[in-house]
C-alpha cells in the first residue's frame, strides 16, 4: 500500500507540475516522470506487460518525439499574447473555451470518483499474461483494434501529405 501511495503521489504531483512549468522541456520531463509512476502502478496491479509497454510506447517513443520537437523549436519560454495577471475566465476566446473544458473535466472527475468502486474488473490472471492479452485483443476486441490501426494510418497519410513539397523538383 505504501508503494501505491508513493507512485500515486508522484503521478499526480508530476502531472500537476507539467501544466505549471514555464519551460516546455521541464514539462516534457515531468510528463515522463508521471508515465514512469503510472507504470509502477501497473506493476503493483500485477500487469508487468502493460507496465513495460507504457514505458516503451509513451515514455520511450512518444516523449522522445515531443522532446525532439521542443528542442528543434528551441522555445525556452511560452509565448503569451495576453496579460498574465487576468483571470483565465476573463481572457480572450480560446482561453475561455479551455477554462470551460477544464471545469467540465473537473466535474466529470468528481462525479466518477463519487460513483462507487464497481469497475467491472478483469478475471484473475488475464492482465498478467501476454498470451491472454493477445488472445482477447485479436478476438473480443479485434474490431476496435483494427479501427485504431486505420486511424493511425490516416494520421500517417495526413502527415505525409502535409510534408510533401509541391511543384517540380
Amino acid at each position: 500500500m505504501t508503494l501505491f501511495y508513493l507512485f500515486a503521489a508522484v503521478a499526480v504531483l508530476a502531472s500537476l507540475l507539467v501544466i505549471g512549468q514555464r519551460n516546455p522541456i521541464y514539462s516534457v520531463l515531468l510528463l515522463i516522470a508521471s508515465f514512469g509512476a503510472l507504470s509502477g502502478l501497473y506493476v503493483l496491479l500485477d500487469a508487468p506487460f502493460v507496465a513495460v509497454i507504457q514505458i516503451v510506447v509513451y515514455a520511450g517513443a512518444i516523449m522522445v518525439l515531443f522532446l525532439f520537437v521542443v528542442m528543434l523549436l528551441n522555445a525556452p519560454q511560452e509565448d503569451t499574447e495576453y496579460d498574465e495577471r487576468v483571470h483565465p475566465l476573463l481572457r480572450p476566446g480560446p482561453m475561455r473555451f479551455g477554462a470551460a473544458l477544464a471545469i467540465g473535466l473537473l466535474v466529470e472527475l468528481v462525479w466518477a470518483l463519487t460513483r462507487g468502486t464497481d469497475t467491472g474488473g478483469f478475471p484473475d490472471g488475464s492482465v498478467s499474461s501476454v498470451a491472454a492479452i493477445g488472445q482477447s485483443l485479436f478476438t473480443d476486441y479485434a474490431f476496435p483494434f483494427e479501427v485504431t490501426s486505420i486511424l493511425i494510418l490516416v494520421a500517417m497519410v495526413g502527415a505525409v501529405v502535409l510534408a510533401r513539397r509541391e511543384g517540380p523538383r
Binding site: I32, V52, I55, V56, A59, G60, V64, L67, V130
Partner: peptide, 21 residues
C-alpha cells in the same frame, strides 16, 4: 522477469534521454 526482452527494450529507449538532455 517474464517480459525481460521488453524490459531491455524499454530501458534502451529511456537511455536516449541522457544524451538528448
Amino acid at each position: 522477469v517474464n517480459v525481460a526482452v521488453l524490459v531491455v527494450f524499454a530501458i534502451a529507449s529511456m537511455s536516449v534521454y541522457g544524451i538528448v538532455l
